[in-house]
């Protein structure tokens, strides 16, 4: 359940941004979550609802943007899409894959007022 910690991290990002950019209330949070980020989305939504109480995001809606897992296959010498870290290359079936994307955990943008 480190999703609760991650949601605390989201709140810190919001509070820092509120100080720097002068807003007092967050309506929507767009969060980028990579398929390989090790995050359970239901737990993330649950955690967000818990930590937003009594904060500037009390009434905020969480929108999660999924980023697919991407890897470079050294055998095929091309980029492929993977769902999990232990997936084989969908073309050659090998495991010589280097993850190149899908590990994102990022607050992308906010609607604020």
């Amino acid at each position: 359940m480190h999703e609760l910690s991650l949601c605390e991290g989201v709140m810190q990002v919001l509070e820092d941004a509120a100080r720097n950019q002068g807003f007092g209330c967050v309506n929507v949070v767009w969060l980028e979550v990579g398929a390989l980020a090790g995050v359970e989305l239901d737990a993330m939504r649950f955690g967000f609802d818990v930590v937003k109480k009594d904060t500037l995001a009390e009434n905020a809606r969480l929108e999660i943007i999924r980023i697919p897992g991407q890897a470079w296959c050294h055998s095929c010498a091309k980029g492929v899409e993977i769902r999990q870290r232990f997936d084989a290359c969908p073309h050659c079936g090998g495991y010589q894959l280097q993850v190149t994307g899908g590990e994102e955990l990022r607050v992308k943008e906010l609607e604020v007022e």
Partner: peptide, 24 residues
Amino acid sequence: AHAHAPGLSQARMVQIEKDILGRN
């Protein structure tokens, strides 16, 4: 909160692009 006049929403978009684990 929401002290603005009805119909005159002050809502705006803010680009953030910040890693959640940035502080750690």
